[in-house]
Design a protein around this nucleic acid. Structure first.
Lengths: 250, 250
DNA sequence: CGCGAAGTTGAAACAGGTCAATGCTTGTGG
DNA sequence: CCACAAGCATTGACCTGTTTCAACTTCGCG
């Protein structure tokens, strides 16, 4: 599928179902009015395609509306580090707006739909709606926090722990968005994605996942992940209960 | 040395020598006026002491004025992951302002002096000076980028590469601040810091550093690091020339 | 002069990486 | 409808980078 931009939005921000989720803070009418005209359209990207490419400057920014994406970097030796996975409501491309260009790329993991914003309008947003400017900072700080967590995972945890951690984190985030419940969630990742996110080799990722399955801790069937013993997984992954936050969405 | 706050600033923002560096963007008079009254005082923290502690909410934010600090997390099993090192001009404690509390801690690596800001005033900053609000986002995005790099390093590089990378990065940042030149720079880190930042064991960190020294690639004497063959180090660390950016400072 | 923090080194164990082969789907074109 | 290719998952055998344990040194400092 080719990327496609629709000039006339199919979804009006004011009636956006994503925005209505209890996970997201309510906007004022003025803020919503601004968002409506800030939004430039919508766009679909096929699974596997890049949304933004490292070192290329883009004139657009996006909010992920549906599907999964991931931020990553290709190193000179050909290995790929995935920094984190993006779920609906996540903002994409801020770095390319704040600096000239980004140092990393963003790719669609599944087919993805995006709300499109004009980079040149970002400054207007800061000027006219300080509250939205603050939201942009919030989202950036939040994403940094996710990367921090991933760094702690890759730096300090062993293979079992890393994979358990990743699964718990992605389950939690989906649960928060009401995309999952009862420790069962969509799971579009290949083992290669998991390997690249956790810094493990593909082979060892496979072995470790098989081990987790044999222990009856997890189960994967098709694109569906079940966490069978969440408490035990959490102990293994050394995660504490982490508070869910009310968050902004653009 | 006990933490100490001086009510009357010794350094007026308007004549701040740090701010004058070519690395930092020039502020307008209005912005400077605002900063003067935004700043609440100064503070010194002894080497080794925490500046901010995980899960504790602080009413303050800081700009690092002199010395080194680092952001870190203690995992339940006692290991420590250092997310990144902070140098003069870096902003500290945004996460604790944007969320309720931070998930990580920040410690002084050397003795440190800080400019102190009131968290409750942050909102005023966004409202009255969109340009400064944008700067806060800039700094947050920039820090995220640093963590991204560190994650790619820990996830994909081997021991030699990780340590070479860390040294090059810290040299570059110091050079940018005119704290170093000719591939020689201050180096207050212990091997334990390096180990915790790179996700290596202390012993292996030591062996790897010795190896780098025996190869004549680096030299450490006291608190001074020399990079003897920067091109070779860069190849080993797989770093490309990275552009230096004009950055804001608060 | 002695103590603690930081650095150094050897030896042994092991977690995880690499290489290589195999199987299982799924889609596609003849 | 079958054959074949391509992507993904799986497994064995072997190898090595890194960890662990333990000892010993060096240095700064009270």
């Amino acid at each position: 599928m080719a990327p496609r931009t629709t000039a006339t939005p199919n979804v009006d921000c004011k009636s956006c179902p994503l925005r209505r989720l209890p996970a997201f803070r309510a906007f004022t009418d003025d803020e919503l009015d601004f968002m409506v005209q800030f939004k430039r359209g919508e766009m679909k990207i096929a699974a596997g395609a890049d949304i933004l490419t490292a070192n290329a400057s883009s004139t657009h920014m996006f909010t992920l509306y549906s599907g999964w994406a991931f931020r990553y970097l290709l190193l000179p030796d050909g290995t790929r580090q995935i920094f984190n996975f993006l779920l609906p409501g996540d903002f994409i491309g801020l770095q390319s707006s704040v600096f000239d260009a980004m140092e990393h790329s963003v790719a669609a993991l599944t087919e993805v739909s995006l709300c499109v914003f004009q980079r040149s309008e970002l400054w207007t947003l800061y000027r006219q709606f300080p509250s939205l400017g603050f939201d942009v900072t919030w989202l950036t700080a939040h994403e940094e926090h996710l990367v921090d967590d991933n760094l702690a995972t890759v730096g300090q945890r062993d293979a079992r722990s890393r994979i358990a951690y990743l699964m718990l984190q992605l389950y939690r985030r989906q649960e928060h968005l009401e995309l999952a419940k009862k420790y069962v969630c969509p799971w579009p990742l290949t083992q290669q994605h998991i390997a690249d996110a956790t810094g493990l080799s593909l082979v060892h990722t496979n072995r470790t996942m098989r081990w987790l399955m044999r222990q009856g801790l997890i189960e994967i069937d098709g694109e569906r992940l079940s966490l069978h013993k969440p408490e035990q997984l959490m102990r293994m992954a050394m995660v504490d209960e982490d508070r869910l936050r009310l968050r902004p969405i653009l």
